[in-house]
Amino acid sequence: MPRVLYINEKFGHDATIILDSGDACWISVGKKGVLIRSHKHSFWGGLLGSLFGPKLYQERDVYRALSVAQAILATFRPVPQIRCRDAMLKAFCTAVWHCPSPARVKTVLHDPALLTA
């Protein structure tokens, strides 16, 4: 089962979720859009992975990211472990939570059907 490593809403809006595969996904939501990166779960992997890990998803258009977030909330069931006040961060964390691997995260978030949900 995936687990939330941390959620930060005080000094930015980001979170890290450890997937079933053992990989970590760092989710960052801000005024400039959404960025999700993958990295191996370790101290150095977490520190450097959020900066240099492979990008799984990036959307610089905030309005498009918001429509994807709304589609995610309509598609996936809520996760009680994800306690965010920021609706967009909560949505992207929920999508990542429901994926077993980084490859699946990339596939799900780039699915055109998600935009039409």
Rank of each mutant, 00 (worst) to 15 (best):
V4Q: 13
L5A: 09
I7L: 07
N8G: 01
N8E: 07
E9A: 03
K10Y: 07
A15C: 10
I18C: 04
I18W: 10
D20G: 10
S21Q: 14
S21G: 14
S21E: 09
S21D: 13
G22D: 03
G22S: 06
A24M: 07
A24G: 12
A24K: 03
W26F: 15
I27H: 05
I27T: 10
S28T: 03
S28R: 03
V34Q: 07
L35P: 00
R37L: 01
S38L: 04
K40W: 06
S42P: 14
F43K: 10
F43E: 08
W44R: 11
W44S: 04
G46E: 14
L48P: 05
S50F: 10
F52E: 00
G53F: 00
P54A: 08
K55G: 05
L56E: 01
Y57I: 04
E59A: 09
E59P: 01
Y63G: 07
R64D: 05
R64I: 15
A65L: 02
A65I: 08
L66D: 13
L66P: 02
S67P: 10
S67H: 15
S67Q: 15
A69M: 01
A69E: 11
A69I: 08
A69L: 03
Q70T: 12
Q70L: 08
I72D: 06
I72M: 12
A74Q: 06
T75V: 09
T75N: 10
F76P: 05
R77E: 14
R77G: 08
R77L: 09
R85Q: 10
R85N: 12
D86S: 11
D86Q: 11
D86Y: 09
A87Y: 13
A87Q: 06
A91L: 04
F92T: 01
C93P: 02
C93D: 00
C93G: 00
A95R: 04
V96N: 00
V96A: 06
W97D: 02
W97K: 01
P100R: 01
S101P: 08
A103T: 09
V105L: 07
V105T: 02
V105W: 02
T107K: 14
V108T: 13
L109K: 04
L109Q: 04
L109R: 10
H110W: 06
H110C: 10
L114C: 11
L115I: 07
L115S: 15
A117L: 11
A117P: 02
